[in-house]
Design a binder for these strands. Structure first.
Lengths: 336, 336
DNA sequence: TGCTGTAATGTAATCCATTACATAAAAACA
DNA sequence: TGTTTTTATGTAATGGATTACATTACAGCA
């Protein structure tokens, strides 16, 4: 591989000039710039990134931490993240922490060692201590996306989860449902708490508060939806919920299966509403009514925010994107 | 950040000794090693990776190129890849090429510039020229997984696609089906050609060759399965296939939807068999019979193979893993 | 004790791009 | 034309770890 020295030789100038021609063209004569450009093409030079990183103490790498790469919900967010990052000359290092604290710590440790320039955090399943002290210094290069920590003021891109849950429940109420249950994500997760809050407040406002055991805790997976679905539906029809609001499409789809197993007709006997609008939600039976999040927008915004922080720009601390209710065939007017 | 100099100072030795204590402990007295270890802990040292990479001309990074991150089929493979890579001290850089040649080229260019040490290639949607000349030199750090190029002898980890297709068709034949169609992936894709070959040869062997238009080309997506499904099913029952073998679960699920739309009962009127055994296949209606690939095994094997190549070990050129037919509810004995 | 061979450690060059500082060249001005 | 500014370029130090080569310490043996 040719180095900057070879280019300098070919262009008849010093390495400093070559470097400047690349990094700060305005500091160099038009003529030299062209000579350098020609020399670069001639010798086939491309800069050694390790050397540059060493000298500049940066890595042009952004770590993206998520709980589970396999979850299709994140795919589109990642696409958005990468698009913005690549355009700005950054690479994206995907980190799956699998709820493993030591793993998360490992990724955070890339920051002080200049192996990564910033972090986008899409899970709260990391030790709070890792981010705890960062909120004060508002140029710590960390952005939260989709999720957030209670009481920590970190730059965040997410939706209004409470409002989204209210929308979902409001829609079910408008269809005449009064017995509305929910299958949630982990209850210690702030966004799930927000959704639960939206769910309960909307039901109370309407005068149909839900019994405590109609708030069933899941973990966003198919299986959780299925299991909690069976528990919710396996009782006499009169005491059964007529509608269920799920915190993920996967769980909603698990619930659909539970309903089939128990011979509960969707949507005639049971309305189901999911969350996320994953690709699959259009292909299940019946097609799933769901709350759509602007996934690629979340990704793009989060990365832009982080790059702005790295560029020492002044940034807004919170960015709230809007959700959309997508009505398909898993919801219908309440029969009773 | 403390550097190796600080450690040397604290341990009362030279930087060379510190470096050796870390990289080649056997070259150093037990006593010094302990002194160095203590010094490292004391000053809180961790090596500067950029400096190391620069000196060693390596990056401890493996690029994984795939056609589409969003495809759940790859998630588990990635998990396997990462597990092995991390254990060996390597990072994984995921590259989505989205059928974009220039993007793929960009990732390949990371190799000569020492930004990446090796590539795992899981798509043939890259310019053949990028790998063309590599086959001769059997220490070019590239491993193919799942896919391969016709006529290029590159280290490869994959399944026997022809055999898998034969298994699927054989199973359908054993259920009494004689009119068996297929929805394929891109026909210029070697693994799809293998599957088509398995499909046609097995049908011919049995004496029920399929008409040309029963080999419907798709692209692995839900939508393709749906559209080709409608085309296949939208004809009088007597001239319709009674079974369809799909090259992906997503397409099979798209097909299930087409069948519902056209009022074709699965499995009584139509048997459907998918490929890949994605998580979703257990939650659709009916649950999908499918061919399962050992996904995490593929990932792990591919990464091990690549690391062996990097370690200049002698490696086998081909590694073939076995598939499994998973019978669920989308297939049944032929009614006629 | 003195010599030889091996093991342990140190010195300094190296990887390559960047940039502070120095110098030379050109432009601006009197 | 001579002096001052400005602009362009060069020189050399720098970032931090690794490692070839040089040196020292020590064990083994006669």
């Amino acid at each position: 591989m040719p180095t900057i020295k070879d280019v300098a030789l070919a262009a008849g100038c010093s390495t400093a000039t070559v470097s400047r021609a690349l990094a700060a063209p305005e500091k160099v004569t038009e003529a030299t710039r062209q000579r350098v450009a020609a020399a670069i093409a001639q010798v086939g030079y491309s800069p050694n990134v390790a050397a540059r990183n060493l000298r500049r103490s940066e890595s042009k790498t952004i770590v993206v931490l998520l709980p589970d790469i396999a979850n299709p919900f994140f795919s589109e967010i990642i696409a958005g993240l990468e698009e913005v990052a690549h355009r700005a000359g950054y690479q994206v290092l995907l980190g799956d922490c699998e709820n493993d604290a030591s793993r998360a710590r490992g990724y955070f440790d890339l920051l002080p060692t200049n192996q990564a320039d910033g972090i986008i955090l899409m899970t709260t399943e990391v030790p709070r201590s890792l981010v705890q002290d960062r909120q004060a210094s508002n140029n710590f290069p960390l952005v939260m996306a989709c999720e957030y920590f209670d009481g920590l003021a970190l730059p965040t891109v997410c939706i209004d989860n409470r409002l989204a849950a209210e929308k979902a429940v409001e829609y079910l109420l408008s269809l005449g449902h009064q017995r509305i249950a929910t299958i949630t994500g982990p209850r210690n997760n702030p966004i799930c708490r927000d959704r639960i809050l939206g769910y309960t407040s909307e039901l109370e406002r309407a005068g149909y508060p839900a019994p405590a055991d109609w708030i069933a805790e899941g973990d966003f997976s198919f299986l959780a939806g299925y299991q909690q679905g069976r528990a919710l539906l396996d009782r006499p029809e009169a005491t059964r919920p007529t509608a269920v609001f799920c915190h993920s499409d996967e769980m909603a789809i698990g619930l659909l299966k539970a309903a089939r197993d128990l011979n509960v007709q969707v949507p005639t006997e049971l309305s189901v509403i999911g969350f996320d609008n994953i690709g699959f939600s259009e292909y299940c039976e019946p097609e799933l009514t769901t709350i759509s999040q602007p996934r690629d927008d979340i990704g793009r915004s989060a990365m832009r925010l982080l790059l702005d922080i790295l560029a020492k720009k002044q940034v807004p601390l919170q960015q709230t994107l809007t959700t959309q209710l997508i009505v398909r065939d898993s919801t219908a007017r309440c029969a009773q």
